[in-house]
Amino acid sequence: HNGKLCKLKGIAPLQLGKCNITGWLLGNPECDSLLPARSWSYIVETPNSENGACYPGDLIDYEELREQLSSVSSLERFEIFPKESSWPNHTFNGVTVSCSHRGKSSFYRNLLWLTKKGDSYPKLTNSYVNNKGKEVLVLWGVHHPSSSDEQQSLYSNGNAYVSVASSNYNRRFTPEIAARPKVRDQHGRMNYYWTLLEPGDTIIFEATGNLIAPWYAFALSRGFESGIITSNASMHECNTKCQTPQGAINSNLPFQNIHPVTIGECPKYVRSTKLRMVTGLRNIPSIQYRGLFGAIAGFIEGGWTGMIDGWYGYHHQNEQGSGYAADQKSTQNAINGITNKVNSVIEKMNTQFTAVGKEFNNLEKRMENLNKKVDDGFLDIWTYNAELLVLLENERTLDFHDLNVKNLYEKVKSQLKNNAKEIGNGCFEFYHKCDNECMESVRNGTYDYPKYSEESKLNREKIDGVKLESMGVYQILAIYSTVASSLVLLVSLGAISFWMCSNGSLQCRICI
């Protein structure tokens, strides 16, 4: 991952900044910058967002509201009850120091605090018919004063009620008058409520006091790749198909172990950190130390980045220098085999997901714990399936590479015959000098055995068991695999060879 928040398929997220979902939807004055928000790819909250409900109280069923919003990608904020005409018999300019803005008392931008007009609070009834052709999110509140005197001074009615009804919602609220500790300079409380109004449905408000009335509502448009994440990451000019709280993932790998919460087309989250597919040879310690064997393909974004291909070729060293050249036929066979294998694994496992966190309130801790156990169970199954699949494929890959290298080895052996000696570690020792032209003939299969047989015969008789390297004779190393990324691999195959001279070296080696 890149540690950044990015656009998702070209669409920017909605960053709530210092506000949370509650503050944004109710219209906390400190969240005025969010009022123009219309569309987004996903919503970003920060872990310690401080601006929620400015007048103390709870947004009821907040967790369910977050779940609903996680599939919303755009909205239209509109005046559901026009301020100047909807409440002619009531005062609608209630403000509070708890919702101060720029040093002055204020109130929510989407709600109206209705109080008595003169000395009376006549029963009010108002309704709205949803003609938007889509779901409408309606929010309101109920004020709970701290004393009967406060109730009387604001609403005149000691036994007030609030009723809200639609086809799918029907509740009646009565204020709970009680002494409470002071929070944000208030002994009173406000509880906030919401409902989704279906197209064509009607919502009716009736009250004799204590109503925090809707002013603006939201017509919602769903987008199934949307979601809500909690993150401290910063926004950058970048684009992605998959976003996590820790950063964007741009990967076609089937798995990731970065974060379980994802938005967009994302690899499946697994616990494993070692889900690797081999593309090189079986481990040979001396070669492995030099980083030549054991190439791997990573299938977990965050564990290993991208696929690494092994390729086969020849390396030689003689009086004229040293050089490398790919054996294109065996390399292409290996590439085709690995590509098919990788595609097979991805096809089997690479279903892209959006995974969002589930919200539970403080009273639902047991449910949250149960949900976590269920999620953990599914996660263990996914991890096991992934590891088992790759384990089985790896064994076949190792066998496949062994065969490829063996074929190259036999190709060289059949040409050199007794003009060189096998020394048991995949290397041959020449009994004759071999210049670049000679080396090329070994690589392309045109090695002239009779041409060098007499010199080889004489050297075999002279050496008589002495280690060949100390006599200045020449080696050919018969097994060799270097490691390159897919891009470098293609470039390498396009070149005939490249040279690395070893000044004054008397050794001649050709490596497979």
Rank of each mutant, 00 (worst) to 15 (best):
G504D: 02
L363I: 12
C266P: 02
N407H: 11
N362S: 13
Y384R: 06
G294N: 12
M367Q: 13
S481E: 14
N361C: 06
I308T: 12
T351L: 13
D464P: 02
G377N: 10
S286E: 06
G306Y: 08
N350S: 15
D375K: 05
E368P: 02
N250Y: 11
Q288S: 09
G321P: 03
S414P: 02
M500F: 00
G294D: 00
N361S: 15
L253Y: 10
N425I: 12
E455F: 12
S505C: 03
N283M: 04
S492N: 01
S231P: 01
A334W: 07
L391N: 10
L389W: 03
N333Y: 08
D380H: 08
S453I: 11
S492C: 02
C242Y: 11
I258T: 01
Y312R: 00
F353C: 02
A334H: 06
L292D: 00
Q246C: 09
A295P: 03
R460S: 10
N333V: 10
N343Y: 01
N239T: 15
R460C: 01
N350L: 03
A326V: 06
G321K: 03
I300Q: 05
T273F: 08
V270K: 01
N336C: 05
T351K: 13
N333M: 09
F430A: 00
K241H: 13
N425L: 13
C242G: 08
L398C: 02
K451Y: 10
N436M: 05
G313T: 01
S470M: 02
N419D: 08
L389G: 06
A355H: 00
F255M: 14
L389A: 14
R396Y: 07
V374L: 10
L506G: 01
Q415E: 06
Y447C: 08
L398I: 07
C511F: 12
K457A: 13
N407C: 03
A297L: 06
I510Q: 02
D399A: 06
L292R: 01
L398A: 00
V442N: 05
C511E: 07
R366T: 14
L477A: 09
L281H: 02
D327T: 03
M471E: 11
K373D: 08
N503F: 01
